[in-house]
Design a binder for these strands. Structure first.
Length: 218
DNA sequence: TACATGATGCCCT
DNA sequence: GGGCATCATGTAG
């Protein structure tokens, strides 16, 4: 906990300085599997009024595009999934199950479809705002997992919706939603099958920081 | 225009 | 561990 507060302080202090430089487009212009692996340990940052919401990425899934039956882009470009076919580093947000927004980032060069789904984060700063957005109370024992452990949960905690955030450039310094490298490096990374899909359900394309308690399951 | 379904989470048992 | 809310989207008719 002390470590988390220290990290939050470091990031908050360095706002408007080099600590908040977003990862560049080149980072995302690669195979979603490589992007997935390297996104682990990076920090998702939302600028919200005067507040800074930050959380470490601990679980993601790769969706490979036309050759991946589970990918939204498997059957071609539509009004919903067009962002996946566009330039890398843009947010693809969609609504599912009548309740939840799921947050992805586009990968591969412009014209090639592919993406990474964000499945779980470890909150660093702006925890009160996240709890408010999730409409839950954080007591003294602090069940922080409920904030951002799960793709629908993390989107709600960060106020991510399709209307507000779809097709947003995550690589622009002017964006209110970016991903930064704060120097943290994960220990062991585990790769498992993806969660909640029926097609290509066995492919090992889910990447997690081994042992991290904010991972959504497993 | 109708209809089946889904990259989920929550509540109940 | 299972049932279910709830609706945008894609596809079929």
């Amino acid at each position: 906990m002390a470590l988390l507060c220290g990290e939050a302080m470091k990031i908050a202090k360095n706002r408007n300085s080099s600590a908040l430089v977003p990862l560049p487009g080149d980072f995302y212009a690669r195979d979603p599997r490589a992007v997935s692996r390297e996104l682990l340990g990076k920090v998702l940052v939302r600028r919200q009024q005067r507040k800074l919401l930050t959380a470490r990425i601990v679980e993601v899934e790769a969706y490979l595009g036309p050759d991946d039956p589970a990918s939204h882009s498997a059957r071609g470009r539509t009004a919903r999934n067009f962002v996946l076919f566009g330039p890398p580093g843009f947010s693809y947000v969609y609504f599912i199950y009548g309740n939840h927004y799921l947050f992805n980032v586009s990968c591969l060069p412009d014209g090639d479809a592919g993406g990474v789904l964000f499945r779980a984060l470890e909150p660093i700063s702006g925890i009160e705002q996240m709890a408010e957005a999730r409409d839950i109370l954080i007591d003294a024992t602090g069940e922080l997992r409920k904030l951002t452990s799960g793709p629908g949960r993390l989107a709600e905690a960060f106020g991510i919706t399709r209307e507000r955030d779809n097709e947003k450039d995550l690589t622009s310094p002017r964006s209110d939603l970016i991903i930064v490298d704060d120097g943290f490096r994960p220990g062991r990374i585990e790769v498992t099958p993806r969660i909640g899909i029926t097609k290509a359900a066995e492919s090992p394309l889910r990447y997690i920081i081994a042992g991290n308690k904010f991972v959504s399951r497993g």
